[in-house]
Design a protein around this nucleic acid. Sequence first.
DNA 1: CAAAAATTTTAGTCCGTACTAAACTACAAC
DNA 2: GTTGTAGTTTAGTACGGACTAAAATTTTTG
Lengths: 228, 228
Amino acid sequence: MTAPPSQRHEGLTAPAEDCLKAVYELERAGAGAAVTTNDLANRLALAAASVTGMVKRLAGQGLIDHARYRGVRLTERGRRTALRTLRRHRVIETYLVSALGFSWDRVHEEAERLEHSASDELVDRMAAALGDPAVDPHGAPIPTRDGGIAEGPAGRALSEVAPGERGRIARVEDEDADRLRYLASLGITPGVEFEVVDRAPFGGPLTLRIAGAPRQLGPQLAAHVVVL
Amino acid sequence: MTAPPSQRHEGLTAPAEDCLKAVYELERAGAGAAVTTNDLANRLALAAASVTGMVKRLAGQGLIDHARYRGVRLTERGRRTALRTLRRHRVIETYLVSALGFSWDRVHEEAERLEHSASDELVDRMAAALGDPAVDPHGAPIPTRDGGIAEGPAGRALSEVAPGERGRIARVEDEDADRLRYLASLGITPGVEFEVVDRAPFGGPLTLRIAGAPRQLGPQLAAHVVVL
DNA sequence: CAAAAATTTTAGTCCGTACTAAACTACAAC
DNA sequence: GTTGTAGTTTAGTACGGACTAAAATTTTTG
């Protein structure tokens, strides 16, 4: 008997997929360094010991390389698997916003659950229904069906832009619903043009002009807004 | 800490939701009698001992009543919970067919997974996008948001219809993809009008006329087609 | 109505995922 | 270069969900 215990993409459980995705995202953020247990534990809101356990299982499946006490790296297979999960996540987010009228601050949570149960076929149909969009509602690139991802031009943080410069919001790297709602209320969403009017020193607020109107924004929020 | 271990509607795990749904459906089919462990084990493709374990947990949560050695019954809370799961399932099936172009024989599997991770809000949005349909692609009634369900006129099995009678296919109570595909190829889908031309005795095949064309159908299949 | 058959439950095991507490490494600071 | 601390792993526990095998109970049958 031993039926496959439900809801699995290639034998991976939901926590395992979450872990791979987290490794992928932390590797990306962390400029090539190995991802530490602690970082993973923070990201996944787990105790470090739990991460060690998960990491061992994933290493046993050949999805990550684990050097004891020195962190983990995705293997090629692990990377492909993580990208498939990421594709599911981002397509679902986009579909929820574009086809079902969800607001961008509420889709993360929903996609976080659905990404583990939606089949690749469903996800492909959703993507096709939207004309295969390249980015999700937060401006993050959607991995393609064949495992590619357009990381796009690097961009820089809005908090680094000097007064007088103009640019366009590329993406918002935050998942918190309250912060996303607040940013949207300021008009800070992907694709929007802005000009930095002023930047107060010592971590002070940024003053922007968006669509002619002046906007103030704290530096912690601005640090997660990527602009071009 | 102890974060809610993901993907749960009111603290219920996916297997628990499946079990409640199975109890609901078996109670419905079984004319008021208590549902036996064996029936559940068959329906859920589990060992009987596993069902006993699940049943104990659900009884502990007040969702079913369990009399040792004599089967289970849903409590009022259990019934409401089962209906919410059933609503998610049927709305999702309908959405997949109507909005995303799935064929009716492939949606069951997908919905079986998604029903556990889709939020009620998502399901309500899907339903609204379709104009709050009353039945799913197989003709089964979709429970309403407020916990009601229109069981509709009883109907009878197509296998019971006498030669010369006419009627309309109400629903197809089968989930097997191959059989559904076969039925669709014969034109047997909800809403279709038919006339029984002949019924061979001793479990022989049924001869129908559908849209003017003659069709033959075995009695096992016909037994799961409900007509009005 | 007693014995046989079928059903159900208990007992014991395993795995994945979590936790805490204790032990172990690595690295940095002195 | 030892030592302290931060970070990591091990050890031990728990729980849900699954299994098999054995015991208990109900039902059927002779």
